[in-house]
Design a protein around this nucleic acid. Structure first.
Lengths: 331, 331
DNA sequence: CGACTAAAGACAATCGTTTGTCTATAAACA
DNA sequence: TGTTTATAGACAAACGATTGTCTTTAGTCG
């Protein structure tokens, strides 16, 4: 390409452009090559380069869904780091479909990715490239996992409600396919016990729908309210379901937080928009993304990494929680 | 790889796996190869394949930002189509930085993309691959542009407010770097004229901050309210700024929509969460994304495409707009 | 039985780089 | 002047597929 125009061998061009060590090239030639490269906007084909088994500066990102919400935030944080470091990345979304989760890593490898970043994805088997996951539930050998410190999150959430005097609290249990569901639940149970807070089975709401709208949380609270109103707070699975819960409470004539406090999880963008704004636990999603990305890059540089990197959540107190009402109406 | 294990030439393997026409391979061998391919999970290297000048089944997507909001929705729609059709894609976000917008197409080409999809990106110059853009403002030769029918959108928005009796309306003019700003504004002016609706310069708010939070809209309305309150509606640049506007109005003691109607644009997810929920124009963002993606794929198949594909907006009436109050308080 | 033909698959060039080895040319030394 | 040694760059072999051409073998026909 460039080589023949300059009447040099492609090898020489390669040496100059890559500043290959141990090669003697006179400055004059160097300049000639560089000038021509700039002039023609020469861009060495990564395709050809990676055929040599070299690094492609390309990462594959596995996530359940593109669009608004949780995953996009993590993606955004990861993307910033990757682009910053001169990496490009594929995003492959699998909607939690097992076959795709299995297939994509292979397809990504065929495209020559140096590493894989998995967000909220139930990985399994052996990955064809160095991998770091975010909020991966299962422990996969060799895969570093960036996770929220769920125990700390539960402490912050329940502690906040406890201090406000709440004793009868309704809980939401996340959908089984959401990888955070189980660990979050376990942490809540642990902390409840530590606080000697009784968890009433009749106040547990099990989510099951695969939704990302407030509709997720509405029916559970709606149903619960038909049966009983003897709780002073709801600890929701996430902000989206919390917003739905507020609606349901509102539609049932209850005021938030005067009658019932609502506690979210995630601190999505809308959490601060709505009225009342949501008290919630912020997962530092962007940070988790960038942390995962930089960890992956370090892994590619053959650094040793721990199996688990825990990230601290943050309590964000807004308007949706308040002092527990003292008089509890019975149904 | 596979070839030597089977004791065949790589050529033969290639023929079988690609079902190459005009080659005679006995069924026995065919099966042998296929079985081995399945057994080893053989995945032909796209890298090597594309070095032949073949298609890579890879698209590069250019957008300003990853994360929540506008662009992610379009991306999501495009991604669905692309993955469906067996394409993978790079996403490159440029934060409207000119140098990156110029550089990325070249870098994407070096990675062998078959085509480029540009979302809300100010393209310029000659693109190194077939390109389709979404909400691209400038017309670039050879680039098909998927855009909202801004005139129709303005008709829906102003028509709605007009029918509710609003005559003194405050307007927001988007930031200069947002590619929709100008065309949206022009359409509004046109439609206002058609409705004989006077646009009062003192009621025009110019946005300038590069924000994606309600803070975008708050200060403009706040300032305006300090000067005058003789308007009955605000036509916001987008939902995010509309949410900020509602806050500002609320903080100033005005009720939405009783005192002032607020009209958004985009129909982001939070538009239906907040109270009052937003009346807005829905851009079929996902649809625009998938339309752009499928158009790009058709372009890659050498179909002729129009320069512009217009997409119809949809009026979503919710709670934030209502009958104009008849008595207009003067400041 | 010999000539022709079709089938089955090997061989080799190619894509655009990288990188190890080798060869000219020129400079330096004895 | 003849020998050594550094320098500048060419040469060629990879990388893993695709694809045009060529060879071998076996079968068919007259």
């Amino acid at each position: 390409m460039l080589a023949e125009h300059l009447d040099l061998s492609p090898a020489t061009v390669s040496f100059v452009l890559n500043n290959a060590p141990g090669r003697s090239i006179p400055p004059a030639t160097r300049e000639r090559v560089k000038a021509a490269a700039k002039k023609f906007g020469y861009q060495p084909s990564l395709i050809a380069r990676s055929l040599q088994g070299l690094k492609t500066q390309t990462i594959g990102i596995l996530l359940p869904e593109l669009g608004e919400g949780y995953h996009s935030q993590v993606l955004s944080g990861a993307a910033d780091v990757l682009m910053q470091e001169g990496y490009f990345f594929f995003t492959a979304h699998h909607r939690h479909r097992k076959d795709l989760v299995t297939e994509y890593p292979r397809l990504l490898q065929a495209r020559g990715v140096d590493g894989i970043l998995a967000i909220d994805t139930q990985l399994e088997g052996v990955l064809p490239a160095p991998t770091v996951s975010v909020a991966g539930h299962t422990a996969v050998p060799g895969v570093t996992n960036v996770v929220l410190d769920h125990h700390r999150a539960a402490e912050l959430a329940l502690g906040h409600l406890y201090r406000l005097g709440h004793r009868r609290i309704a809980y939401m249990h996340g959908q089984p396919f959401s990888s955070d569901s189980q660990s979050r639940w376990q942490a809540i149970m642990q902390v409840a016990r530590a606080l000697s807070l009784e968890v009433h089975p009749e106040l547990i709401i099990q989510l099951d729908r695969d939704l990302n709208t407030p509709e997720l949380g509405y029916p559970g609270i709606h149903q619960l309210l038909l049966r009983r109103r003897d709780f002073t707070a709801v600890l929701c699975f996430n902000d989206v379901s919390a917003i739905g819960s507020i609606r349901a409470l509102h539609d049932a004539g209850l005021k938030v937080p005067a009658d019932v406090s609502v506690f979210g999880f995630d601190d999505i963008q809308a959490a601060s928009y709505i009225v009342p704004s949501l008290t919630t636990i912020r997962q530092p999603l962007q940070h988790m993304g960038s942390l995962a990305a930089s960890s992956l890059l370090r892994k590619l540089a053959h650094e040793k990494l721990p199996d688990i990197i825990k990230v601290d959540p943050e309590l964000v107190v807004r308007e949706s929680t308040g002092q527990a009402r003292s008089a509890t109406r019975r149904p």
